[in-house]
Design a protein around this nucleic acid. Structure first.
Lengths: 190, 190, 190, 190
DNA sequence: TATGAATGAGGATTCATTCAT
DNA sequence: GATGAATGAATCCTCATTCAT
């Protein structure tokens, strides 16, 4: 699975042949089919596996948000940092999830699902913050859409862009700090 | 090209067969090759074509930004509206550009290039705004990375997400309005 | 036809496309079919045309063989010289005829036929020489087979071999001279 | 490979389809590609294989040539006999090598190479005979060119010509005998 | 006569999957 | 559990030929 993930993320789903995977794994072609019923299946398993990990990170990321904006900012920054650190350690997985493979529909669906779930988590947090009076009364679903767009796009550029020298050099913590500032205060923020 | 674009964006590059394209076009297989040297070539032409259109929209989107924050906000909103309207009218193209096909490297490169160029345009605008004292002194490359992430992610969800009932129902103008608020003031903005 | 001959001999029958021919000729694809019913037909016409020329050369090559061995040698040398000069001026044709295209059976047949006819001419001459007591009593059909083998093989190496520096530098007359010596006296000849 | 050789020599390279080969071999199309990377590759392998065999025959054909013309004649006749017997047993291979396929350049090159090597072998022998004073001082490269022309042309007519009733009926030994007479003494020989 | 766009059968190669050992 | 040879459907592309203009 590790090898498959690497090859999928590096070369894409279709361009990764079973023969490539088994060659690198040092086993015979038939052996692959002892462990996985099909190419689709292993892709699915890889993605679902990854989804669990990510959701765990996100779930653990938010701690308490009791009270002030200051708390919310800190909490958010903590989550971003965790998420970016996880991404850094699992580049291949993230690449696969961000690029979206041109694979069987089932695989694409699990990928979509992953981000939808992450977004839901964000949305719940925003809702709570509004209820607590920390954030102004706005549409949480819209705000979370903005938020996840912001995060995933930045993540993509941070890890995989050759064009962003500034971005690429930053650590997960630094990115998280900058990001949270934009999140709460926008371009005009301090 | 129109048919190819539709099929590519709907089914992906690899799953779109030349035979699919010509069947829908009502011509013979060989006719395809009279007009395009290869499958890769037509994909490339489609994308490059699309790139030009988008860049034109972006270039024309920003008008003057002479002076106040108010002006900048208005200008930005205008651009977003234009961009989203264009996207709405060219859903297939946008889908292709956002999802990124798993195609030949050349095709993927042109897609990447497209967004890099759009981002550059944003970046220049932010620079100018900083020089004019409209925006606080920050790293424009970082800000533009945030901005493009925000826009493209939102665009994706607006056009192609089945999960965002709130988002989906909004018009290009409304999205642009909400987006510009987040852009300048963040979650805390009015 | 000239262009076709060039391309056929240079690249082979199958690798020469009608589109190659018409491009070089500066006419449209359809125009080709106004003058020739098919690719096979033009090849056939080219070869048959060439056959006539060669047979004329061979027919005129032998003059009188009245009497002595000396006469026969001279006569033979004259023919070889004519033949080799013709070949030098019609390299493309000769290449086509010697290599034997992998074409339709009909084309190959005309090529075979050409050499068979040339050989017949040789055979008749040998017969006459035997009748005149110039050559010893042997099987003329065998001798002519030897002779044509000798000539065509040498011709091939002379015109198209990159390995025969000695051969390549000789003129048609010189080759003819050497050849005739071998023809009549073999390796042991003076 | 045997089947491929047969089909190549019978129908030519281009007219032999992979589907023909596998049908006759009784395997699936894909199986072909398990053993050979391409059509070109199998042709190459066949030819190279054949080249080795021929060169072995030629290398073993000449024995000692110690002394007299008589010895040289005998030695030569022995080689011709071996060569012609080999050719008789490997008609398909010889046909392929003599006709020269219209295949990829690589294949054609190996064919050319084969005969060049055979000729070199002849040439060396002639050189030695000159040094020993058996043959008169002449250009060995020219003589070997004559010799190989003579042999290959005769071989071609013996095996594949429908026009040479006299030739066709002879055995390898008989042809060799006649050939060696022409080789050493020419038309005028006893 | 000339054009050149259109045709479509044909053919090499790929690769996920199977299965006897 | 493991092997790797065998399968064959699938697909891109070629090119001689046709034909309306």
């Amino acid at each position: 699975m590790k090898i498959s993930l690497k090859l999928f993320s590096k070369n894409g789903y279709h361009k990764t042949k079973i023969s490539d995977i088994v060659r690198e794994a040092g086993v015979a072609q038939g052996t692959f089919y002892w462990y996985f019923p099909s190419k689709e299946a292993i892709a699915l398993e890889i993605i679902q596996n990854g989804q669990q990990h990510i959701l765990k990170v996100v779930a653990q990321g938010y701690r308490q948000t009791n009270g002030t904006v200051q708390d919310a900012v800190k909490s958010s920054e903590k989550l971003f940092k965790d998420l970016f650190e996880f991404a850094e350690e699992n580049k291949n997985l993230i690449k696969l999830l961000l690029n979206g493979v041109e694979a069987e529909a089932s695989v694409n669906n699990v990928i979509k699902e992953t981000w939808v779930k992450v977004e839901h988590s964000f949305q719940n947090n925003i809702k709570r913050a509004i209820e607590l009076g920390i954030l102004p009364e706005k549409d949480p679903s819209l705000e979370s859409a903005f938020l996840i767009s912001l995060i995933l796009g930045t993540l993509d550029r941070w890890l995989f862009s050759s064009e962003h020298s500034t971005l690429t050099k930053k650590s997960a913590g630094e990115i998280a700090h900058d990001l949270v500032s934009f999140e709460f205060f926008g371009l005009l923020g301090i």
